[in-house]
């Protein structure tokens, strides 16, 4: 609550063009957007909640639920695609039972399919939190996921 108020203070001008930056800051702070956040921002910017929800669901990176402890990002850029990242996606989905944008029920993993990570020469690329893996194979996916599960235990 307080943190939202603090963020809003940084935007003294009530202008709609601040909406995306405000939501980005809130998400940065809280991990995802809550109904409360939508309500507060709407009040502050004089915008209906539906407009804020509508905007947030339009863009890839706004979320309405928390990420997993281990956030997996998989690059599905064209170069990674050419290097079979599609198989990796299937593998991850198969291993975790979640789709792009979802979090496992135990809160351990979440998956985000990214359109390009910018390391096209090293594909396929995936990342878990801030650790990157390049030239990943299907078997490695299994190992990586298992590794974090063990770390957790």
């Amino acid at each position: 609550m307080d943190s939202i108020a603090k963020i809003l203070e940084r935007y003294p001008f009530v202008e709609r063009e601040n909406l995306i930056p405000i939501l980005q800051e809130i998400q940065q702070e809280q991990g995802y957007l809550t109904e409360e956040a939508v309500r507060e921002v709407g009040r502050y910017l004089n915008l209906p909640a539906s407009k804020i929800y509508s905007l947030a669901t339009f863009y890839n990176r706004f979320r309405f639920h928390p990420l997993g402890s281990y956030h997996i990002r998989l690059c599905r850029g064209t170069s990674c695609q050419v290097h079979q990242s599609g198989k990796l996606e299937k593998k991850i989905i198969g291993e975790l039972g979640i789709e792009d944008g979802q979090t496992t029920t135990d809160g351990l993993y979440s998956l985000e399919v990214v359109s390009c990570m910018g390391a096209c020469g090293m594909g396929p690329v995936m990342a878990v939190n801030n650790r990157y893996y390049t030239g990943v194979t299907e078997d490695q996916v299994e190992e990586i996921i298992a590794y974090y599960r063990e770390t957790e235990e």
Partner: peptide, 15 residues
């Protein structure tokens, strides 16, 4: 208002 994008765009109320 609209929610989502692309082929999953829909019209719905907030949240």
């Amino acid at each position: 208002d609209f929610t989502g994008r692309g082929n999953t765009t829909a019209v719905s109320a907030a949240m």
